[in-house]
Design a protein around this nucleic acid. Structure first.
Lengths: 220, 220
DNA sequence: GAATGTGAACGTTTTCACAGCA
DNA sequence: TGCTGTGAAAACGTTCACATTC
């Protein structure tokens, strides 16, 4: 193949399948573990096995973005970890805001894994006047009315919604108005953003429905 | 409305795509909302629009399981809600066990949505001796050593893991040994069950990675 | 020799377009 | 006429198999 040098630059990274990105995130975690264990090199065979996918799929996933391995040898663990971190956007520190400091919101605020991946909570929004103005884990709790300012001040692009169902759409609207570009929604309701932003859903009941369907029709 | 004959009985419900089940779960939620609003009838057009999918996709999804609508009219809201509930296995009350009563575990224990979908927490497992033997929301907290008995007594098929990363594999093994057939895993690690059971993953860092990849390569 | 990278084959899911029915 | 149900086509994602490279 010619054009080896400019190849990566010519690629279009914008409509990679979401499943690929999900798997990339798993490779990233496993590579991180291998790296801390001092393992220097890994084959597509070994790495893919850890993630329960086929070796050819791992190689195809990486092929969307370029060539990162050495034939006959495998992948440099630390290098590939870095490359995937870049692809996932984890080299930047992302400021996020979180709305709803119930049990779930508190769980996420306390979850150290977010910081490890470069997500920093720039503000927490609550409707309960008793909580507003206080601090939790060193983070300030605001009224939703202040979201525009906080988003602007900290250049926030991502919002996390952990409010009750009935408040979710209202909060979504406030986030979109404030300039949020992507939302992670934990409320069990389908959001209809006024502008076409990116919404990821974490639906616990949905996941449990899959399990119960599986148990009903497969093997009990 | 009852011309469905033996067609349904002939179908094989066992390897329906997981995406279809996920969407079914969303249709189910929306139908529930419409039902409580007193809406009697809905077209594939209207229902699919609520869930952000194409009308043809909704119809194809339902076609896996049978014919439930009336040509020229649409779907009976209450009837279709019931049908999908059956398909998802929500007519049965599923006993589940939850391991790990940290913030996230506590959030799920307090989450009334589980009961609404027919999931009842039969036992909570903790490693902290100070919590063992106590009650939370009327539910008993056990040592993981008791999981075999609890699973047997309550005929539990589903386990939820909300323990820290380092303990997750050990808990997974204990659940599989106890006879659990399906696991919902919130720990940020890939589980390797000793037997080939069904594992669903809720990976918050993974979902956030998708958002950050999107923001990096699409529109910031 | 060993393991990557990739075109081609394959399988699955989505969408189209319209026949069939109330 | 209006809307479902469904074959056929298109789009998409996965796996195979092997040429390529170290």
């Amino acid at each position: 193949m010619s054009n080896h040098k400019t190849k990566n630059a010519l690629r279009d990274y914008s409509h990679i399948p979401k499943v690929v990105i999900k798997r990339l995130s798993k490779y990233h975690s496993v590579l991180e573990k291998l790296d801390t264990e001092g393992i220097k090199n890994v084959s597509s065979q070994n790495l893919s096995h850890e993630v329960h996918v086929k070796a050819s799929q791992l190689r195809k996933d990486l092929a969307y973005f370029g060539e990162f391995g050495t034939r006959g040898k495998g992948y440099d663990v630390s290098y590939l970890h870095g490359v995937i971190g870049d692809i996932l956007g984890l080299k930047k520190e992302w400021a996020v805001v979180l709305a709803g400091l119930g049990h779930l919101g508190y769980a996420l605020v306390s979850y150290r894994g977010l910081e490890k991946k470069g997500f920093k909570i720039a503000g927490i929004f609550e409707s309960d006047p008793k909580k507003i103005g206080r601090n939790v884990h060193g983070m300030r709790i605001y009224s939703i009315d202040d979201i525009g300012r906080v988003v602007k001040d900290s250049d926030v692009k991502i919002g996390i919604i952990t409010v009750p169902v009935d408040a979710a759409q209202k909060v979504c609207d406030a986030m979109v108005d404030a300039g949020i570009k992507a939302i992670l929604n934990f409320a069990p309701v389908i959001l209809h953003p006024r502008k076409p932003i990116f919404v990821e859903i974490v639906d616990i009941s949905g996941e449990l429905s899959i399990l119960s369907h599986y148990l009903t029709f497969h093997a009990i």
